[in-house]
Amino acid sequence: MDYKIFRAINRLVGRYPSVDAIMIMISQKARYVYVLLLILMWFRSGFYKKITIQAIISACTTLLIHFFIKQFYFRPRPFVNHNVHILPPIPSGMNSSFPSKHTMLSFAVATSILFYNRLLGWFMWLLAFLTGFSRIWSGQHYPSDIIGSALIGSITSIVVNVIRWLWNCFVSCVMHSYNRICAFVRMR
């Protein structure tokens, strides 16, 4: 079933060059939208600084989980075992298909922001969904890789949000240090 869904999506590659170009752009450039939004949020207000820190903690935790999964589990990418249409850039066949780092990080950050800002969070969730879909379209991941990665990224953010009392002191320390550095720079 996983391969059938993959084929149904991937066989469209090459038929619609403009969609191919959009999928390549989303797959490779969406992460810059996330970084830009986090930077803009950081400079907006103290409330948004806390959201940014929570999103960064979720992203770092997700990267750690990604690293551990890659150490113990390997699933060949679709283009290794099947004749598929693949869009650039072509990843190494030695990289595991599961989990998708792009998708995990996108959903981790989007979910973190969704807790505090619904409009921006839903926009970022839509972008995360498109990121995952573009990875299937481009022949780099199976649908189950994307669904699993989206769940891991989202659940990681939920857990980080639930246990934020553990790292609330860390966030307060970062905010206090940042404010003191800014005040010191203004005095000079």
Results as ranks from 00 to 15, higher is better:
residue 1 M to L: 10
residue 4 K to P: 00
residue 5 I to F: 07
residue 6 F to E: 12
residue 8 A to Y: 06
residue 10 N to V: 00
residue 10 N to S: 01
residue 11 R to F: 01
residue 11 R to A: 10
residue 18 S to W: 14
residue 19 V to D: 02
residue 22 I to W: 09
residue 23 M to Q: 03
residue 24 I to A: 02
residue 25 M to C: 07
residue 26 I to M: 10
residue 27 S to E: 02
residue 28 Q to K: 15
residue 29 K to E: 07
residue 30 A to P: 00
residue 32 Y to V: 13
residue 34 Y to H: 12
residue 36 L to E: 10
residue 36 L to A: 15
residue 37 L to D: 06
residue 39 I to R: 08
residue 39 I to W: 10
residue 40 L to V: 06
residue 40 L to Q: 08
residue 41 M to E: 03
residue 43 F to G: 15
residue 44 R to H: 11
residue 44 R to Q: 11
residue 45 S to E: 13
residue 45 S to V: 13
residue 46 G to W: 05
residue 49 K to C: 05
residue 49 K to I: 05
residue 49 K to T: 06
residue 50 K to R: 14
residue 54 Q to M: 12
residue 62 T to Y: 01
residue 63 L to W: 01
residue 64 L to Q: 03
residue 64 L to S: 07
residue 64 L to I: 08
residue 65 I to A: 02
residue 66 H to G: 14
residue 70 K to F: 00
residue 70 K to A: 03
residue 70 K to R: 06
residue 71 Q to E: 09
residue 72 F to A: 15
residue 74 F to C: 04
residue 75 R to M: 04
residue 80 V to S: 13
residue 81 N to I: 07
residue 82 H to I: 06
residue 83 N to Y: 04
residue 83 N to I: 04
residue 85 H to M: 10
residue 88 P to E: 13
residue 92 S to R: 03
residue 92 S to E: 03
residue 98 F to K: 13
residue 99 P to L: 10
residue 99 P to H: 10
residue 99 P to A: 09
residue 100 S to R: 05
residue 101 K to I: 12
residue 102 H to P: 00
residue 106 S to T: 07
residue 107 F to Q: 11
residue 107 F to P: 03
residue 108 A to H: 07
residue 110 A to Y: 04
residue 110 A to R: 08
residue 111 T to K: 05
residue 112 S to E: 01
residue 113 I to H: 08
residue 116 Y to N: 09
residue 117 N to Y: 05
residue 118 R to A: 09
residue 119 L to G: 14
residue 120 L to V: 06
residue 121 G to R: 13
residue 121 G to H: 07
residue 122 W to N: 14
residue 122 W to K: 14
residue 125 W to K: 15
residue 126 L to K: 01
residue 127 L to D: 02
residue 127 L to T: 03
residue 127 L to Y: 01
residue 133 F to Y: 14
residue 135 R to N: 08
residue 137 W to M: 11
residue 138 S to G: 13
residue 138 S to A: 14
residue 139 G to D: 04
residue 140 Q to C: 12
residue 141 H to K: 11
residue 147 I to T: 03
residue 148 G to Y: 05
residue 149 S to E: 06
residue 149 S to T: 07
residue 149 S to G: 13
residue 150 A to I: 13
residue 150 A to H: 13
residue 150 A to P: 07
residue 152 I to H: 10
residue 155 I to L: 07
residue 155 I to P: 00
residue 156 T to D: 01
residue 156 T to G: 00
residue 159 V to N: 03
residue 159 V to L: 13
residue 159 V to Y: 05
residue 161 N to K: 09
residue 163 I to T: 12
residue 166 L to G: 11
residue 167 W to T: 05
residue 169 C to N: 09
residue 170 F to V: 15
residue 171 V to M: 09
residue 171 V to I: 10
residue 175 M to P: 00
residue 176 H to I: 10
residue 177 S to A: 10
residue 178 Y to F: 04
residue 181 I to H: 07
residue 181 I to F: 09
residue 183 A to Q: 14
residue 183 A to I: 10
residue 184 F to A: 15
residue 186 R to N: 01
residue 187 M to W: 08
